[in-house]
Design a protein around this nucleic acid. Structure first.
Lengths: 212, 212
DNA sequence: TAGATTGTTAATCGATTAACAATC
DNA sequence: TAGATTGTTAATCGATTAACAATC
């Protein structure tokens, strides 16, 4: 671990990529890895990777690189994946249930403890889907700080307001709408539409390539 | 519509936000909207919005703004949402099925025509989930250009290679791994991990605020 | 020692913002 | 006309890249 520095949003967004690559490496891979090797594997600039890693770890040794296990720990600790945060989901449709049942979030220190919906039921995952009325007391009792929104766009702002009312400080929004919130509340949009736009443009460019 | 200009990735990523806001406006809202109003509503800089809009539409009139309906059309046409593209999904687990059954993609000109999985079955949505062996012939026969990957990380690269083999040019990747591909193939990662990192950092900063 | 790799300091690039002129 | 809003040209800002010195 390293003295905590100011880190830009763009660097932050690259860290999960490094982490995923490192964790997916086979057990019998070399114990050390260089920024150069990482950059090549991920198709990135080596200076950029080196600078990024220097921000979250001081385990880099000239000619050797980083000890993989230590680097993974440093990134995880930096991102706060080492201490789990509890979250709730509002909206138990197909997407909400898919997230509710996804086991992989534990890797990111995320623990989805309950879901809320207008029509309560028990989810296949075994986790309970409670009626909306129970949300406020649940959140306050369990000091929930993160909320996940998987309701239709038309009611998303409403749900966000309720979450903020409940003391939630960070919202992961899967509904395709802009949400208003005070400055101290983070709204992070899971931008399906953004990615679709990028894909769509690529295909358009592919179809009618420049004619000059 | 406007003469097609070079557009940066960052501008492109903001367009869907404008579009969503405009489309969610109530029927009885004023027929015209200014870049200024849009900026205020979305919490953005007004110059930025104005410049962005100027790139995709020339319908802006001083003192009046843009005709809403025309602006929506211009953005949709620019993004290619007006002519639908067919896509396939590989991986019919919870997430895959959630996407398969989502009606909202039509708004983005996306039409998911079929899914493929090791264990074929009929999806609740009514769409068929075919065995993997049928993928290649299906894609070639239907000239599929877009593929969606919702398989576990361990087999994602494999699936991507198969897709490319089938003639697919744009891949929407939901698996949390980096995928290698030739330069002319676009891999767009639906970065759950990235967004989680941002949320996680926000909560960390919230918990232990700077002490100076 | 030589060379690979690190971290750092300086230069470049691109995107955002600010200032301004044009127009209905 | 006056003022709101547009589009454009110039200045600022931040992030990426390049060059270099340090080290095992």
């Amino acid at each position: 671990m390293v003295e905590r520095k100011e880190i830009s949003r763009s660097v932050l967004k690259r860290l999960p990529g490094y982490l995923a690559y490192l964790k997916n490496l086979p057990e019998d891979a070399p114990a050390h890895i260089s920024a150069t090797a990482l950059a090549t594997a991920l198709g990135m600039g080596e200076v950029q990777v080196r600078k990024d890693l220097a921000l979250v770890s001081d385990g880099g040794r000239p000619k050797i690189g980083y000890l993989r296990t230590a680097l993974v720990e440093d990134i995880e600790q930096f991102l706060g994946y080492d201490n789990t945060t509890d979250a709730i989901i509002v909206g138990a449709g197909k997407l909400g249930c898919a997230l509710l049942g996804y086991e992989g979030f534990a890797e990111y220190g995320l623990n989805i403890v309950a879901a809320f919906d207008r029509t309560p039921h028990e989810d296949p995952s075994g986790k309970q889907v409670y009626p909306m009325e129970k949300m406020q007391s649940f959140c306050k009792r369990n000091k929930i700080l993160m909320g996940i929104i998987t309701v239709p766009a038309s009611v998303a702002q409403n749900v966000a307001d309720m979450m903020i009312e409940c003391g939630i400080k960070a919202i992961w929004n899967f509904a395709p709408v802009h949400l208003d919130a005070p400055d101290n509340i983070l709204i992070q949009n899971q931008n399906m539409a953004t990615n679709l736009a990028v894909l769509s443009m690529h295909l358009q460019a592919q179809m009618k390539p420049k004619k000059d």
